[in-house]
Each structure stands twice: as structure tokens, then as C-alpha cells.
Design a protein around this nucleic acid. Sequence first.
DNA 1: TTTATTTTTGAATGAACGTTCAAAATGTTA
DNA 2: TAACATTTTGAACGTTCATTCAAAAATAAA
Lengths: 203, 203
Amino acid sequence: MLLNIPVLNKVMSVMAIKKFDANVVLEQAINTFWQYGYHGTSMQQLLQATGLRPGSLYREFESKEGLYLLALSRYAAATITTVNKRIEGSSSVLDGIKSILVDLFEEAQAKDYCGCFLVKTQLELSAHNESILTNVSEEFAKIEANYCTNLKTIFSDEISVHYSKQLMLVIFGIRVYSYQAEQPEDVEVFILSILPWLKEDFA
Amino acid sequence: MLLNIPVLNKVMSVMAIKKFDANVVLEQAINTFWQYGYHGTSMQQLLQATGLRPGSLYREFESKEGLYLLALSRYAAATITTVNKRIEGSSSVLDGIKSILVDLFEEAQAKDYCGCFLVKTQLELSAHNESILTNVSEEFAKIEANYCTNLKTIFSDEISVHYSKQLMLVIFGIRVYSYQAEQPEDVEVFILSILPWLKEDFA
DNA sequence: TTTATTTTTGAATGAACGTTCAAAATGTTA
DNA sequence: TAACATTTTGAACGTTCATTCAAAAATAAA
């Protein structure tokens, strides 16, 4: 295989091909970190999960922390994409948001449920690594801004800002409350009782 | 000092006195674990925080895990006590609850804010230790039941159950959302917009 | 085939981890 | 003072941690 990457007027050829797909490896790393946390995950676990040897993993990702940061930003990007796809695929913005919240509750019924990677990172690492805290906060700000943008197609700017704050708080609440045993009898009713404006559907 | 502890018809005398107060040590351990998490806290840190030598600490608490579990249950007990004292010291149950929520937001402004020890434990250790997960869930159930009991002095049983669920979700939400930068302009207004029933004051 | 370049391998490394325990210190009783 | 029960001490232990790097393998161009 010849890649023909022009670098400084030269043509580089690749003499050995990577045996692994970095995207797949990242996905596996996300799942491991997500479940066990940063300090709770050992390199051994990551090597096992990815099937890589230490040398290869370090050549590609620099360090455990480097791998974690990449996993984190990958996860954050996927989150926003998922939200928007869900809203687009719904009959209305409010219906989309409502179904996102209902799903959060229902995901939590899975026995391997492990909450939100961003939230877990925030709580675990806020005391260790200020830059990660900033990093995660920025991602949450993006997510909130994204909800706000969607709400502005229905509500005034002021109300959209307010509702998107409520939304974030409730999402965080669901993310933690879901760990507790049983689901409310009717999840949708419960959500609408906290965020009644989700009922008014301007579709 | 003679303690005179009767054990099996004998009188035991204490020949050497403990130099530390186990309650103080526990408090110091709580603060360290609370801030850095279980895996993020090393025995070295705990020895430094408590001023104990490894032998003394292990003689008293068995292991790192033993110390953590004791710290956790101590923290949980203090939580319920604090809630009830706050409600008792308020002009009404609803006013007490409202002020608890407002305080949660304001605590988060402290630069050494580290959220809720129980929530952090739940998120960090749910994948490692099923018994801790159960433990924490039980504590949350107690806290929810305690809110419910207080609400029943005002509302019907059914409504109290419902409202205490809302309350727990919102508390979790505040606990996580607070990490994000700025406080809402008017915290009380924000809280009342999510839990409007806190407004109706039957004092 | 030789040369060139990149990737994989995996044993080895030093540091940090949680934990132990024999010896010393402590303070009361006899 | 001697005998004792209890606590403190802290060096040492074996393990696991994240990480490294010289050597081998892989692949394509010359």
C-alpha cells in the first residue's frame, strides 16, 4: 500500500501497516474508562480491552492520560450528535427532548448502566486536574447551548435560556437518580411533572 | 488513666493510651476521600491527613476499604441530621427545604467545592463494588424517606411520595450542575421555577 | 535482493501502591 | 522496681502501577 503523503516536497511511503483501527481502539477505551473511571482503570485493563501491546498503545496515544482525553472528547462530540439526530427524527423539538429524557431513565435499567462519562469525569477528576474540569465544563456548555438553540425555534430567547438551564439540571438529576433501584411507574408523567413546558407541543 | 472495663469477670486496665481521637481521624479521612475519591486517594495521603503511622491506622481501621466504609456511613448519617436540623430551625418545612436547596447552590461557589460524597462514591465505585453501590442506594433511600416524612406534615401521602422523588432528582441535579461556572442570577427564583410547590407555604 | 521506513513486540524498569510486624515506647498495677 | 497490656513506630514486603526501548517483523521501493 502506498499512501503518497507529500511532506516538504517529498513523498513518504509507508513500510509497515497498522494492524489496528484507532477509532475502534478509542471506542474500546471509552467503554473501559466510562465503566471504571480514570484511576480505577489500569493500563493492563486497557491493553486487554484493546488487544494492543504497550508499545503500540503508547506510540499512538502517548500516555494513559492522552488516551483518556481523546476518549473524552470523542464521547462529548458523539453526545451532541446523538441529541440533534434525535430531535431531527422527532415530530417536534419538544417531543424529541422529551424522548431523550425518557430514554435516559430507560437506559439506566440496563444492568451494565454506567451513567454519563462526562459527569463521572467531572466528579472524579475535578480535584486532580483543573484542565480536565475546564474541558468538561466547556463540553457541558456546548450541550446546553445546543439545547438552547433548539428551544429558540419555539420560545423566546429569554425563556429558551431559562429552560435549557432547567433541562441540564434535570438531565444531571436523572443521570444520578437513575442509579437508584426502581424506575418511576410512568417515566413520562414524572418528567412532565418537573418540566411541564415539555407538554405544550407546538409541532 | 484506668478504664475499668469488665470483661469476662476480669478488670482490664489500659497500659497505653491512644494518642489520637478516632472521630477526628475519621473526619480527616472523609475530607480526603471526598475530595480525591477512593482510587484517587493513596494511603500516603491519608497518613499525612491524619498524622497517623501506618500501623496505627491499620490497627484502628483494618484497611483502606474499612476506613472508607466507615467514613462513608459517618458522612451519610451527618447528612440526614443536617437536613432535619435545618428544617426544624426554619419557619416551615417548605422554607427549610427551600433554604437547603439554595445553600447547595451557594456551597458550590467555594473554590474547594467537592459535591456530595455519596454521589461521588456511587459514580466512582458502582462498577467495582456492588455492596458499596447497595450501601449508598440505601442511604439515599433513607434521605428520600426522610424528606417524604417531613412533606407528609403538609401534603397527602401520595403527593409527598411524588414530591420527595422530585426533590431527590433536583438535589442530584444541583449537585452536578453546580460544578459548572456561574450561579444563576437568582438561585431561589430558579429553584422555585422547577419546584413551584415550594412556594405554597403553609407555615 | 537489498535498502528504507514504520510498526509491533514484550521483557524490563523504577516508582508507588497497600499492607505487615517485630521491636520500642507507654503508662498502670502489683 | 518489675511485670503487664496496649499502642506506636517505621523499615520492609510483595504487588501492581504506568512506561520504555532495543530488537524483530512487516512492507514497499530501489
